[in-house]
Design a protein around this nucleic acid. Structure first.
Lengths: 335, 335
DNA sequence: TTGAAAGCGCTAACAA
DNA sequence: TTGTTAGCGCTTTCAA
């Protein structure tokens, strides 16, 4: 059985194709009688409008693209769920693209999205220089919303968390517990979360009048391995820190693993606070104190921005900053 | 700037639209000269072929649908990655749909996929009765590959793990360590993994001549909460088990949490083995012994089956069973 | 309130 | 080797 077309429905119902189209699109000026006849025909034939045709004709679509670096990262999972639910509630569908933080892959997906006539894009960009590839997409009429990270010289609607404050909360908490030598495992500095979280770390120290010791800051790449390596470097140094602030979830997991490998007891020998909470953070050994980002809500908010933009293409750009929350568990020595 | 069309390219290059199309599709019989002229024009105009039009014309697409119950479940994450990578390598794109194990949501997504003229579907069905909604999709010419779960009265290409053997391995391991009263937290019995894993549990007991004690089997729903509740029920019973076999990752996480809440020490007071490994299973407290499914490979295999099916629509259905692996860590008392 | 007809961007059969 | 032409399924004037 081949797919039924609008013509089949029209023939079956004894009306014109235009009328079927009107029923499909809830136009006024269709008699109740005709409407039911057409609807019966659709049901009978198992008709589904062909989206390719619709899109071709309407020059628009009900698909939005969501471009994220890593779907295995719990933060992006929550975000994806938030985006999907919000899109679903607004009758739109989501195409999920995973870039692995690889600009080439991102570019390929952008091409796909453009060719698909996607209605809009929610993007966690791989690099601040991505404006070069993003600009043509926007010029082709596809609006872009940034999530979590920003891009140089490219204004756009943006949703992110207050990274500075999140890091500040974490480090303040450690200070309030009496830790003196708090080390930071910082993330990729060219990415928004990377430098903002480091700034929060500095802010907290400054506020308490603690001089910054540059040997207590090391830079990783937001992945598991670098967390592990840097935590071990810190603990093997002649004068190791008494607490560790780690700038994202994966590096925190790595640090945890690295410390375990060295037989270091947390928080007795070193306290640990991570950025990004995870559903199972309380089941880790020890339960992890972490700065929680509202991932689901970030995703929802991004969809809202996109929908607003679709309605009002020329409205001024909005930037929404959401507040993170410190979740205190055992790894900082307070619980 | 509006999207450039094939006509613009043709005009710019001074050739016909058909020729541009030929260049686009790598047809033979295009002179090198013309080809380069057309390619220059495309580059110059920033041309991307319109997929809606292509699809409308070709009556086929390069998009495959992937329908999974829960993208926050680490197993499905690995699967998604496997599917995406394999699809990507074959020039196809993946639309990811999250059903929450909700048949209505699944049905909605099936409608979308059908209307999108998706080339094929990889489905983790929500229910054995899903054949009713799946059959019309397949009849409309969209092949379906099952992943992880099967559906009644609906033959199709299928990829899954050897659940019986996985569970068997886990329970055998516990038996070999000397545990006598091994309880099972079983999963939803109408789902393939649910009953197969329970069978593996029975098989292992039978093989060792251990009589089955029905009080040592409780049924959950594969979610966190039921794992927590059932673990606690077991441990509060007058004659608690000395080991726990839990049928999936989420319930294992729940059991872990429940046991912690009761102050029970694992594995000293009760050993724990879960089905499904997780990237951070070694960082849990205690490190978790688990049956590892090759999620990534399952995903890749599913894509292969789908591509084969696309080539040969009438070939006999294939069922691929992949082997799981027991990863021994601390929670079973062996490491 | 409905129908006829044109055309969205692309591909493929046929002709040249 | 290239161009002409018809048409994929749908929406939208315009006319009736």
């Amino acid at each position: 059985m081949a797919q039924a077309t609008i013509r089949d429905v029209a023939d079956y119902a004894g009306v014109s194709r235009a009328t079927v189209s009107r029923v499909l699109n809830n136009h006024p000026y269709v008699t109740e009688d005709v409407r039911t006849r057409v609807e019966d025909a659709m049901r009978h034939l198992g008709y589904h409008p062909n989206r390719a045709a619709r899109r071709l004709r309407a020059q628009s679509s009900d698909v939005m693209g969501l471009i994220v670096p890593d779907i295995q990262n719990p933060l992006f999972q929550s975000i994806v769920r938030g985006v999907e639910d919000a899109a679903y509630n607004n009758g739109m569908n989501v195409i999920l693209c995973n870039t692995d933080d690889n600009p080439d892959k991102q570019e390929a997906y952008l091409r796909v999205m453009q060719a698909e006539q996607s209605a809009g894009l929610i993007v966690v960009p791989t690099h601040p220089g991505d404006g070069r590839v993003l600009a043509p997409v926007r010029e082709a009429g596809i609006p872009i919303v940034f999530l979590d990270r920003e891009v140089d010289d490219f204004e756009a609607d943006t949703v992110k968390v207050d990274n500075v404050r999140g890091a500040y909360l974490a480090v303040r908490h450690l200070l309030s517990l009496g830790y003196k030598r708090i080390a930071a495992i910082a993330g990729t500095q060219y990415l928004t979360p990377g430098y903002e979280r480091l700034r929060g770390y500095y802010d907290a120290l400054n506020e308490c009048g603690i001089p910054v010791d540059e040997r207590l800051v090391k830079f990783g790449n937001f992945r598991i391995d670098s967390g592990r390596a840097l935590a071990q470097e810190f603990m093997q140094s002649p004068h190791p820190p008494d607490a560790l602030f780690v700038s994202n979830n994966l590096m925190t997991l790595g640090a945890l693993r690295g410390l375990h490998e060295m037989g270091i007891v947390i928080p007795d020998q070193v306290a640990l606070v991570g950025f990004d909470d995870m559903p199972w953070a309380g089941d880790l050994n020890p339960p992890l104190t972490a700065v929680a980002q509202p991932g689901y809500e970030l995703g929802q908010q991004a969809v809202e921005l996109l929908l607003k933009r679709l309605e009002q293409p020329n409205a001024p750009y909005r930037k929404v900053i959401m507040q993170p929350r410190l979740v205190v568990r055992g790894s900082c020595g307070a619980a």
